[in-house]
Design a protein around this nucleic acid. Structure first.
Lengths: 218, 218
DNA sequence: CACGCTACTGAACACATGTTTAGTATCCCG
DNA sequence: CGGGATACTAAACATGTGTTCAGTAGCGTG
């Protein structure tokens, strides 16, 4: 039924790939619901009918985009380096052009299964990475490593969703590498020395918990 | 031209408010583009024509939703307390029900002006708050306080966009207050003691910067 | 009561939507 | 050279879309 000759990410020039790319761009910047088949077809320089010929339906196209952008984010498997320990694909995505970024953010918001799987994978990878760091002594121990990893990942992905706003506030260009660099500096600093200089907010949190416990012993 | 008799957030029961709430819910969970006037009308128990009577157009309704959710997030002005120093409205939104949360996330992704203004405001508030903390000695000094505040805000808002995924990973209920509490625990901990126990990642960042500087002296 | 004004509806409208159908060009394999 | 896939298009189609129109019910004011 379905025969997909080549789905690699470098063959691009075939009409099918052009359609996928056009859809990715339009979906990313406007959201799936606000982009019509005809708009995608026009952008890709093909007829609307060809889209359904290749992808079955609009939702089929959307799914293909999901999987493509997810596999982009996954990038080459395994490799980890010093500057960004994450898969280089994800790093490129966090730095890179706007369309795929917002597409991925939208996919996560829409609850796309492929995107959810990606999120889980990143959490897994991060958990393992932090566990190793804990063992090697360069990561603080945690009561609930997986929960901490999940939160760290949500911070890691924050620029996907809010990058445009952050860079607007900072009056920077999101696509500029130096801006990204400056951005990450503050992140690394907060993750290394913390933001707060004493424990007052931790204490405040304890107070809230105790209050809660006493009020609703459950 | 426009006469808005009462837009307070407690009068709810009028058809106009019902429409707005229904739209908020549907827009939030599916995205504006995928929700039809008729669906909203049905959910609110009115005719589609009444929507345009009250809001002019679908986009007018969307704008009204934007402003409503933003003013919700703003909440009662000024007040700050220990557990969550942010406006209580925002705190409630970060904890609270799913529809408005994702609506706000979508509004930020879509670049809604009202949402962008809100983001800027939060950054301003946070900057001032951190500056006070710096002066009082419970916040580490920063080279670029505003940039740091912006990034902190993006982390603060991360659950808006990824809360569903985080809570899925943690197998928790997002609406459960105890889960939120546990969530925030890890955040406060990372923001207090940091995530990393030594400076290797800061050093790594410096290495990248130096490398970059030498390679592209610009 | 009469008047205007607002809230509200049912039906219709013009149009954009995703998809189908029938058909043509092109290429590959015998 | 056939012949059967595959890539692709133009046109038509059914339906869903946002919006308009004409009109009714109700309510407060002069």
């Amino acid at each position: 039924m379905f025969s997909i000759p080549n789905m690699s990410s470098t063959d691009d020039l075939t009409a099918k790939a052009r359609i996928r790319d056009a859809a990715l761009r339009l979906f990313g910047s406007a959201g799936v619901g606000r982009v019509s088949m005809q708009a995608i077809a026009a952008q890709a320089g093909v007829s609307p009918a060809l889209i359904v010929h290749h992808f079955g339906s609009k939702d089929g196209l959307r799914r293909a985009c999901d999987e493509h952008v997810v596999s982009m984010a996954r990038g080459a498997p395994g490799r980890a380096d010093a500057a960004s320990r994450d898969a280089p694909g994800l790093a490129a995505m966090l730095e890179g052009a706007g369309a795929e970024r917002t597409y991925l953010a939208r996919a996560l918001l829409d609850g796309s299964p492929a995107a959810a799987d990606l999120f889980d994978e990143i959490v897994d990878t991060t958990t393992a990475w932090l566990a190793a760091g804990e063992q090697e002594g360069w990561v603080h121990p945690s009561e609930d490593p997986r929960a901490r990893a999940a939160i760290y990942v949500s911070w890691l992905l924050a620029p996907l969703a809010f990058g445009a706003h952050v860079s607007r506030v900072l009056d920077d260009d999101i696509t500029d590498f130096d801006a990204i660099l400056r951005y990450s500096r503050h992140s690394v600093e907060m993750l290394t020395h913390g933001l707060f200089a004493d424990e007052r907010w931790l204490d405040a949190w304890d107070a809230v918990r105790d209050h809660r416990k006493r009020q609703a012993p459950r």
